[in-house]
């Protein structure tokens, strides 16, 4: 836009009257031309957590140092040049599948900068774990830093925003929009299926991962599982405060008087043993069958991982009786009256 005032001033200087009559028209034409040619001629502008930066062209040789970015890149159809901890990605994130040609650049916490430099990338994408490396990565290639997981914001909207920005940097903005739209559509369908199944009376849900026989890591309000639940129109059964990675370690008995359904993520070693524990079996949510397992799913993923989560949640919830929410009210008031 910097062109226009300059031109105006020039015109005013040469001929005052001409400038007054012509200038709105000139301005408009210049603006039009500017709008038409700018996408091709000018660099891409990408916004990350540190502000805007310009890339000369869509990146093709990309290195991703965290798994969320890796996942999103693969979703966009871009095969990264290098990724940190590929073995870990294969074990814990798994989907989408990472091609064999991608090179390992070391651990996520201490990626091998010498190797990264050797690969001569044109873009490096990092997360909060690699924040202190920006100064050393910058001389190698432009760095996109997405600080997605934080206690003081809504992780999911930050992740969606960063996904779109990443897509811009890769020249895949249109694909990203399409994928997000498709995901919204899918989430809507899932929501509808759920509503039909539960007759419009959705149960409240808490999502946990069991850490051992007596403790859970409960997912908080700003976590991806809770974001998935929100998209499905499900309310959290207990409010767990925000934290960086969206989860809090708690004793199981803290959940005892929770009113709602408990979804727990697999894998859970010693699952049978847990369910044999008398106290666990007596927990109201177990005794009343308000508990269901969820297939193994990565819970710190990228923008499109939310649909996997939502899908698996719906799958799990639909193993419960359809009347659980309506029954539950009666049951809950009954038991609490009995105790008090």
């Amino acid at each position: 836009m910097g062109v226009i005032p300059l031109k105006n001033r020039y015109l005013i200087h040469v001929d005052n009257t001409l400038a007054l009559t012509v200038s709105p028209l000139t301005t408009f034409i210049v603006f039009l031309i500017y709008m038409l040619i700018s996408p091709a001629a000018l660099a891409l502008t990408v916004k990350d957590s540190l502000g805007s930066q310009e890339l000369p062209a869509p990146a093709t040789r990309v290195i991703a140092l965290n798994w969320g970015a890796t996942e999103e890149m693969l979703e966009l159809g871009v095969t990264p040049l290098g990724v940190a901890e590929i073995e870990g990605y294969k074990t814990w994130v798994a989907q989408p599948v990472i091609p064999e040609t991608v090179m390992d650049v070391g651990t996520r916490a201490e990626p091998n900068i010498e190797r990264i430099a050797g690969l001569k990338p044109d873009l490096i994408v990092i997360g909060s774990m690699q924040k202190n490396m920006i100064a050393r990565l910058k001389p190698i290639a432009p760095v996109l830093y997405f600080d997605n997981y934080r206690a003081d914001h809504d992780n999911f909207s930050a992740i969606k925003e960063s996904f779109q920005q990443l897509a811009v940097a890769l020249g895949k903005a249109d694909i990203a929009m399409a994928r997000l739209d498709a995901q919204n559509e899918k989430l809507k369908q899932l929501k509808q299926r759920l509503n039909v199944y539960f007759n419009g009376q959705l149960p409240k849900v808490t999502v946990v991962r069991f850490s051992d026989a007596h403790h859970v890591r409960a997912y908080g309000l700003n976590s991806m599982p809770l974001a998935a639940l929100k998209e499905l129109g499900i309310e959290p059964a207990i409010a767990i405060k925000n934290s960086t990675w969206g989860q809090v370690q708690k004793p199981i008995r803290d959940l005892a008087y929770m009113k709602g359904v408990l979804l727990y993520l697999r894998p859970l070693p010693k699952e049978a043993e847990l369910f044999e524990q008398p106290l666990f079996r007596m927990m109201p949510f177990v005794a009343e069958g308000r508990i269901a397992p969820v297939r193994s799913t990565w819970t710190y993923g990228g923008a499109l991982s939310i649909s996997y989560l939502a899908e698996h949640f719906v799958e799990a919830l639909m193993t419960l009786p359809a009347t659980i929410a309506s029954n539950n009210h009666a049951l809950n008031s009954h038991t609490s009256a009995g105790i008090k």
Binding site: T107, H215, P251
Partner: peptide, 21 residues
């Protein structure tokens, strides 16, 4: 080097007395 594998040990490592049976 293997943070994800050893995660379920962390509570044991910290020492907790909680019992369920």
């Amino acid at each position: 080097l293997n943070d994800q594998y050893v995660r379920n040990l962390f509570i044991w490592g910290a020492g907790d007395l909680a019992q369920g049976d």
